[in-house]
């Protein structure tokens, strides 16, 4: 797990962490349990799992060695 600057206030300054989760929804729950408020804050974020960007993808599987980044939701014109 990699957290960008916008999330550091919620993680107490932690930029990187290992979290066990089988899918994105599980990951959000795990993060909320560890850092209350973080899971909720991430509900509307985009997430990149192993380089692929997902939006609103609760059921997206996450592998044991997956690299996960959160980023602001991307829309466009």
């Amino acid at each position: 797990m990699h957290f960008n600057d916008r999330l550091l206030p919620l993680t107490g300054g932690v930029r990187q962490a290992d979290v066990a989760a089988e899918n994105y929804r599980d990951l959000l729950r795990a993060l909320e349990a560890r850092w209350p408020g973080l899971g909720e804050a991430l509900e509307d974020s985009s997430v990149a799992v192993d380089g692929q960007i997902y939006q609103d993808a609760w059921l997206e599987p996450i592998g044991a060695d997956s690299e996960v980044h959160f980023l602001p939701r991307i829309e466009g014109g």
Partner: peptide
Amino acid sequence: EGTQAPYGPKFP
């Protein structure tokens, strides 16, 4: 491919 994008993830 594999470059760490400035916004976080590695590019596919």
